[in-house]
């Protein structure tokens, strides 16, 4: 019985997170529009977009893997949601070492996408996939380097414990580990695929890259994946560096992080893929490595 309740609860959370992510996206579009001195769409625009996509017919399909790609992407992100503590609540699954599992699962979604788009055999998609996987080499490394000092400091590899141990406001990890937090924030920018790291989907250059052949319901699934990924990715940084707290605080924190990312994205052009990876392996990585020094000074 308890397991059924837990599953139902998880389904509710997943729905809530998806809708929350879509609303974040809509507000993000609005903010970008205000920065560009436009009026912008209503905040619920992304929800309408997804509904419309699910109402379409006659989508193009290029084979079984092509259809399964978006499903794998969505499954990957839903599974990583199970490991993420939303504020101070216990995640569905938590054990010693789940941070590594979470980070592995984050890679599943782009890989599913790559498998699906690969079967579309569109040259633009192939270029997009190559760029996406290369970009991953950049930001994943920085993300790991920014989280590892926390794991050493608290002597745990369980995300839930790590969040619990850091406590509330004045004890945020952000203050002692601000260098790592800064590196994590730059990694977040690339993880969300926003400018200056949006070379993966560059719409004017490679026609939205991996998504080029997708239409209708498949595209709708991909939009849902993006929406949930927004919460999961900002959630990782919020949990790791901005203390724990109730669900309301969690929403506030992830939203503030999302705002920072959107505002940076609104004013930057994009890097070439080589420049982006080089950038990641230089400045954020050095900042992240300097973050280790805090361990010796502060302890």
């Amino acid at each position: 019985m308890a397991i059924i309740i837990k599953i139902l609860e998880y389904i509710l959370i997943a729905f809530g997170v998806a809708i929350l992510g879509l609303i974040y996206g809509g507000i993000g579009r609005k903010i970008t529009a205000r920065i560009q001195n436009r009026y912008g769409p209503p905040f619920y625009q992304n929800i309408l977009d997804v509904l419309k996509l699910f109402g379409k017919r006659n989508e193009a399909s290029h084979g079984v893997m092509f259809d399964l790609g978006p499903v794998i992407a969505l499954t990957g992100i839903l599974t990583s949601l199970m490991f993420l503590p939303l504020g101070s609540s216990t995640p569905l699954i938590s054990f010693e070492g789940d941070i590594f599992v979470l980070f592995y699962l984050l890679v599943v979604s782009p890989l599913g996408m790559a498998l699906g788009a690969g079967e579309g055999a569109n040259p633009n998609a192939t270029i997009g996939i190559a760029r996406g996987l290369t970009m991953m080499l950049g930001y994943e490394l920085v993300l790991f380097v920014s989280i590892i000092p926390l794991m050493i400091h608290y002597d745990t590899a369980s995300f839930y414990k790590l969040v619990q141990m850091q406590g509330t406001f004045p004890n945020w990890n952000f203050f002692p580990f601000f260098l790592s937090a800064f590196a994590g924030l730059i990694a977040l920018q690339g993880m969300m695929g926003l400018q200056p790291f949006d070379v993966v989907v560059a719409p004017h250059e490679i026609a939205s890259g991996p998504m080029v052949e997708y239409s209708g319901r498949f595209l709708g699934l991909l939009q849902l994946w993006h929406a949930i990924a927004v919460i999961v990715e900002t959630g990782i940084i919020a949990d790791a560096f901005l203390g724990n707290g109730g669900a309301g605080w969690f929403i506030l924190k992830t939203f503030s992080l999302f705002m920072i990312v959107i505002m940076v994205a609104a004013i930057f052009p994009r890097f070439r893929i080589g420049q982006a990876v080089k950038f990641y392996w230089k400045y954020p990585l050095i900042i992240g490595l300097l973050g280790f020094l805090v361990l010796f000074i502060w302890r």
Binding site: K52, A60, H204, A207, S208, Y214, S215
Partner: peptide
């Protein structure tokens, strides 16, 4: 939108 497949 970038491609005909995605557009209405």
């Amino acid at each position: 939108m970038a491609t005909p497949r995605q557009s209405d």
